[in-house]
Each structure stands twice: as C-alpha cells, then as structure tokens.
Amino acid sequence: MDQFKLTKSFSSSFGQISYDIKGEGPPIVLIHGTPWSSFNWRNIIPALSQWFTVYFYDLLGYGQSEKPDEDVSLGVQNKIFSELLDYWELKNPIVVGHDFGGTTVLRTHLLEKREFEKIILIDPVAIAPWGSSFFTHVNKYEKAFQGIPEYIHESMVSTYVQGAKYKSMDKETLNGIINPWLGTTGQDAFYRQIAQADESYTDEIESFYNEIKKPVLIIWGEQDSWIPIERGNKLHNKMNTSEFVSIPNAGHLVQEDQPTELVSYILKFLDT
C-alpha cells in the first residue's frame, strides 16, 4: 500500500465518510483513534484480508473523511458507526478499535445496542482520566492554537505524534499521519477534535463494562507513554469476558511498532 487511498464514500447523517473493503471471508471492522486515520492499519489490512473481509474507514473529522466545522466528538462517532453497519449490512461482525476507535466500539455496543461477534481493543481510551498535558492544554485554548502559523503547527503535530511510537518513526509513516492535518482545513480540524474530547463520553459507559458478554481481547503496548498499561489492567478487571495481552517494544501505536505480533494475537483470539 504505497499510496494509501480510500476509494469508497458513505453519506452519514453527520457528514461524508471515506472507507474501503478488502479481502473475503467473515467481516471484521477496523476503527482508528486520534489523531490517526485508517492509514495506520495499512500494515494490518493485507494480513487480515487473507482470512476476512476487512472493512476500514476514517472517522468523521479525520483522514480522508469530511472535516466539518461541527460536532466530530465521540458523541457522534458511535452513531456514525451504527449507520455504517446498516449500510454495510453487517449484523454481528468482529470489531477492532484502537484508542478512540476502542471507545467508539464500546459506545456502539453499549449505547447503540449493536452486537459484535468478538471485540478487540488496542490501547483504548476507556478509563478516566485520559489525555496528555498537550491534549489538555489544546482542549482549553483551541482558538489560540488554530491561529498559529502553519509551519509551527506542522512541527508541533510532528513532535506530538512521534511520541506515540516506541521505535523511531520513519518519514513515510510520519507524513502519512500528519498530512491530513495540514493546510487550513486540516489544521482547524486537528484542534477541533481535541477541543471536543471530553471524559464524559467514557464516564457514560464505564459502569457498564461488566455487562459485556461478548469475548473481548485487550491488547496493550508495554511502553505506551500516552495511556499507561496500568489503565489497561484496570479496564481488564472491569470486564468479565476479557483477555489481556501486553506487547513488548511497543508504544501507543502498536500497529506501527509491532504489526506482526499484533496480527498474530488477533488471529489467535479469533481462532479460539
């Protein structure tokens, strides 16, 4: 996937969603987090598509999807995902969510009452408190950040995202991550999605984690400096049907640091 491009589009009630489908077999849906996009699944999709029909998309306000000057918070992402499930005619797919994608999976299951065969959560945002000091600062002063010069914005975003990876980030990966956030539209969108982040979206569902009956696999990068692994253990203890796996030499972006190990754990879980 030298040039990662989503080829399909869906008009949700909240905005235009870019997506794609690869492979054949049982359906599995991949949902990215923030400030990422489906680009970060590029090393996972080819392997999974050998056994599954892989559905992947960019959240509203991210990547190649529309970036409206409106609500792109976690409060609408579960509703959009529910619409996509109807559009794709998926009744009980396997779902994989990373970071905010994990939150979207949990909110869709618990609030929208959508059924999933199995749930895989990778370093999800699920237990308060969450958000780095940078995240908290931007959340408070969104308008001030939107007005900074583009070259300063690019430098800040580059430094920020590289902190999510345990291994050094190559230029191709870095460009693929930050390009959607460049230019006037991208810059505004970057700070907008941070400003709209709120712990209330996880507080709303945290007390229901013990009610999940579907098999859940929680995967965590041992060197995740964004969401410490202790938060993953706490989430695991709140669920009755979960397994917990930690991956060494991996930060918050496990799919970038250790894609092969990540795929092996996913396949092992799905084979049981």
Rank of each mutant, 00 (worst) to 15 (best):
71 D>A: 15
104 T>C: 02
62 Y>S: 13
98 H>M: 12
86 D>K: 10
70 E>F: 11
90 L>T: 14
92 N>C: 12
73 S>A: 07
96 V>L: 11
94 I>E: 02
68 P>E: 11
79 K>Q: 12
73 S>W: 02
77 Q>N: 10
103 T>Q: 09
104 T>V: 13
63 G>L: 04
104 T>K: 00
88 W>V: 09
89 E>N: 15
86 D>E: 14
90 L>W: 03
100 F>V: 14
103 T>F: 02
74 L>H: 12
84 L>S: 05
92 N>L: 08
100 F>H: 10
63 G>K: 05
77 Q>K: 10
94 I>A: 01
69 D>L: 14
62 Y>K: 04
104 T>I: 12
84 L>C: 00
82 S>Q: 05
71 D>N: 15
62 Y>E: 09
78 N>K: 10
94 I>T: 03
68 P>Q: 06
85 L>V: 11
61 G>L: 04
84 L>Y: 02
104 T>Q: 04
91 K>H: 09
102 G>E: 02
99 D>L: 13
86 D>F: 11
87 Y>V: 08
75 G>I: 12
91 K>P: 09
87 Y>M: 12
91 K>C: 11
100 F>L: 15
99 D>W: 03
69 D>E: 14
101 G>M: 07
91 K>I: 12
69 D>P: 12
65 S>P: 07
73 S>H: 03
74 L>C: 09
92 N>K: 12
91 K>S: 13
